[in-house]
Write a protein that binds this DNA or RNA. Structure first.
Length: 468
DNA sequence: ATGTAC
């Protein structure tokens, strides 16, 4: 047969009825002496859009079989190249990465050593695509990010003025699902154009009410000791008090993700169920541009949330800020990478991955009882200039709630000198991988510049509704 | 992660 069954598969003809019809079609065409190149282009045309061919005397059967079969449109037969860092990664997360790399828009991928299962792309997944953006390749919490401020406070004040520092956290941010400020914060981000998308327009008011809040889940605000191993932006090596926060774009970012992922799914109705969260928007379309603009606004908004938290805590304490560092870890960027032997512009999705281009500084947190690290990217091309964004969970939230008790956790924290202001049992240190192992697994991606050891930690109390 | 609604 001039076109083999295997080639039909690699062209993207799905198993089952469509493949049988395609094989029969090729046999009939061969008998009629049709040019194989013409066969290929006809089959590709039907695969791209079967609907117009449903009544075609030759191609109709294949077109109808395709219409009836959920399929990955134009799958990348071999899959885009990708590799993983770390050994014992969750098998389901690996499978999600494998699937994402078979999307027709996928160019290259990478899986970070803290990977675990997410919607569509795994958490810890990095995916470079061709002029398309996947809302769930960025994640629900668009622009979830880290910020660290070194404060001009003597290190011994961390213990001596502990209650004062705790009060500052309690006063200057809010935790919990739906948390808002009764007396709104203000920030120049609210002067941006919020009409770039119907979602951001509709949610502007709520976004304002949530400005400076922290949310729930794994989000936190904490004081700790920063140990600088080398000079950093004019700050000499030594020990400092620092404030570290982790949070994102709150309800508004989630609404943006939800709206544009549904829109993307409606544009790819034939994506099989297990791929529906990988639905993408073409950046040449108005919808794609709209998501991109909304995503970028959420980037600024999430940065403003951290800026408010840090500014107000520093003001509350009346202390100068000596150094600030920050990075997104749920976002998409237009970057240039060498893929398939040539440098080109691609869309790099980092969903729970820290940008780690050459010399780029980032923050990788561990858990409430293990260190965060300030890192400098090594610009490894195979990771698409990325690194892990944390330790990664080893246990589901429900499993953690059953497994642990506060009594044992409090003893564990006391032994390590950690004061926990509040948190859910599903965020205790034992639910995370050993951050040191994660760092060791990515020694070729980042170098460690400094270590931050948490001392006073605030997270959302489990199940509690915010009171303000 | 969010907070509404198969």
């Amino acid at each position: 047969m001039s076109i083999t069954e295997q080639e039909l598969r690699s062209l993207g003809v799905p198993e089952g009825e469509p493949l049988q019809q395609a094989v029969a079609l090729v046999r009939a065409w061969e008998a009629a002496g049709k040019d194989p190149e013409q066969m290929r282009s006809d089959i590709k045309a039907v695969l791209a859009d079967p609907e117009p061919f449903r009544g075609d005397p030759e191609l109709g059967r294949l077109a109808r079989a395709l219409s009836a079969t959920p399929t990955i449109p134009l799958p990348n037969s071999a899959g885009a190249p990708w590799r993983q860092w770390g050994q014992k990664l969750d098998a389901e997360a690996v499978q999600q990465m494998e699937r994402a790399c078979r999307l027709p828009i996928a160019l290259a991928g990478a899986l970070m050593p803290d990977a675990h299962v997410g919607y569509g792309l795994p958490i810890g997944g990095v995916l470079a695509t061709d002029n398309a953006v996947i809302p769930f390749g960025v994640g629900v919490d668009i622009a979830c990010r880290m910020k660290l401020s070194v404060l001009d406070i003597p290190v011994h004040d961390l213990e001596r003025r502990k209650d004062r520092l705790i009060r500052a956290i309690e006063a200057e941010t809010r935790f919990g699902v739906g948390a808002t400020f009764q007396h709104r914060r203000d920030h120049p981000v609210m002067d941006e154009d919020w009409s770039v998308s119907p979602v951001t327009r509709q949610y502007k008011d709520r976004a304002w009410a949530q400005l400076g809040t922290s949310g729930s889940g794994n989000h936190f605000v904490e004081f700790g000791i920063l140990t600088l191993h080398e000079p950093l932006r004019g700050l000499p090596p030594g020990q400092y008090v620092a404030l570290l926060s982790h949070s994102g774009s709150r309800g508004t970012g989630a609404a943006v993700c939800d709206y544009y992922s549904r829109l993307a799914q409606s544009r790819h109705p034939k994506l099989p169920r297990e791929l529906k969260h990988l639905a993408w928007l073409d950046l040449d379309t108005a919808e794609g541009q709209e998501y991109w603009a909304a995503m970028e606004l959420m980037g600024k908004y999430a940065a403003a949330n951290h800026a408010c938290i840090h500014k107000h805590i520093a003001q509350n304490l009346g202390v100068p800020v000596l150094l600030e560092l920050e990075n997104h870890h749920n976002f998409a960027w237009k970057e240039r990478h060498r893929i398939g032997g040539r440098e080109r512009e691609v869309i790099v999705h980092r969903k729970g991955a820290t940008p780690a281009g050459p010399g780029v500084l980032g923050i990788i947190p561990g858990s409430m009882a293990s260190p965060a690290f300030i890192v400098r990217g090594k610009g490894n091309p195979a990771s698409l200039h990325s690194a892990a964004h944390g330790a990664g969970r080893v246990m589901s939230r429900t499993a953690a709630m059953k497994r642990f008790s506060w009594k044992e956790v409090q003893r564990y924290l006391k032994e390590r000198g950690i004061t926990l202001i509040s948190a859910g049992l599903d965020e205790v240190p034992m639910v995370y991988k050993d951050i040191h192992e994660v760092m060791a697994a990515q020694a070729d991606l980042v170098e460690i510049v400094a270590q931050f050891d948490p001392r006073l930690v605030k997270m959302a109390p489990h199940g509690e509704r915010p009171e303000d």
